[in-house]
C-alpha cells in the first residue's frame, strides 16, 4: 500500500543542516494498523508526512499503491491525497469558522466529478454518524470537547472513504477515556478495511495495533508484529 525506499530527509537552513530521517525502508501492507513510536524529535511526524505526501524526501522514493510518486506535481499529489489518504492530527486542525458539517465536507470539495452539494452533505452526515456525532452537526468546533473535536477530525478523515488513514498522535491531547474511545473508532475503521498508520507516544495504544515501528534519532530501530491482521 505504502512503500518508503531508502528515504532520507534533511532540513536545511542557511547555516544548519538537520538530518531528520536516514535510510528508512518501510512497507505498509493494505489493511495493516501500524503504530510508530519513538522519543520526541526522532522523526515520527516527518515520516508520517512523507507517507501522506505532505512533504518530499531529500533522497529515496515513496510509493503509494505501487506508483512512485516522488516526482509527481502538486496537482497530482493533491488528487492522490484527496482520493486515497485521510489525516487525523493531534491538534485536530478544525476550521473554527465552519460548522462541524462544513468541516467534515472539506475533502469532498476538492473531489472532481460527481461531488454535488447534497451528495457531499449526505456523506458528511454519514461520517459524523459513524463517529457518534450526528447530534453536533450544526455546532462549531469551539463548542465541542477535545474528544468530540477529534471525532470530527476522524469523520473528516473518513468522509472521502480513503484506503489509508494517517493519524499523528490522535489521542495525544485527550484523557485516557477519550483516548480509548478514539482508539476504538480507529480499530473499527481498520476492521472495515482501512490501512492505518498512527504515530503515538502511548505504549498502551500502540499495543492495540498490528505492528509497531520504533524510531530513534531518525533511524528505524525496531519493526515488530504485535498481532496478525489476517
Amino acid at each position: 500500500m505504502i512503500s518508503l525506499n531508502n528515504i532520507e530527509k534533511v532540513y536545511r537552513t542557511s547555516s544548519i543542516e538537520t538530518l531528520a530521517l536516514a535510510n528508512i525502508n518501510l512497507h505498509i501492507k493494505a489493511g495493516e494498523f501500524v503504530s510508530i513510536m519513538g522519543p520526541s524529535g526522532c522523526g515520527k511526524s516527518t515520516l508520517l508526512n512523507l507517507m501522506g505526501l505532505l512533504d518530499e524526501p531529500s533522497r529515496g522514493t515513496v510509493e503509494v499503491g505501487g506508483q512512485v510518486v516522488t516526482q509527481y506535481r502538486d496537482k497530482e499529489l493533491a488528487r492522490l491525497r484527496n482520493q486515497n489518504i485521510g489525516f487525523i492530527f493531534q491538534s485536530f486542525h478544525l476550521i473554527n469558522d465552519l460548522s462541524v458539517l462544513d468541516n467534515v465536507e472539506i475533502p469532498l470539495l476538492y473531489r472532481k466529478g460527481d461531488s454535488t452539494g447534497p451528495s457531499r452533505r449526505k456523506l458528511a452526515e454519514e461520517a459524523l454518524e459513524r463517529v457518534g456525532l450526528s447530534n453536533r452537526m450544526k455546532h462549531f468546533p469551539n463548542q465541542l470537547s477535545g474528544g468530540q473535536k477529534q471525532r470530527v477530525a476522524i469523520a473528516r478523515a473518513i468522509v472521502g472513504r480513503p484506503s489509508i488513514i494517517l493519524a499523528d498522535e490522535p489521542t495525544g491531547n485527550l484523557d485516557s477515556a477519550m483516548g480509548n474511545e478514539i482508539m476504538n473508532i480507529l480499530q473499527g475503521l481498520n476492521t472495515d478495511g482501512a490501512t492505518i498508520v498512527m504515530v503515538t507516544h502511548d505504549e498502551t495504544m500502540a499495543k492495540k495495533t498490528h505492528r509497531l515501528v520504533r524510531l530513534f534519532d531518525g533511524s528505524m530501530v525496531g519493526d515488530s508484529i504485535l498481532m496478525s491482521n489476517a
Binding site: L54, F87, H93, Y110, G160
Partner: peptide, 16 residues
Amino acid sequence: ASEIGVRKAFGAPVGT
C-alpha cells in the same frame, strides 16, 4: 496557516 494546511492535506491544489 492551519486552514491552509488542512485544505492542502485533504487535496486542495495550489490553484484552487
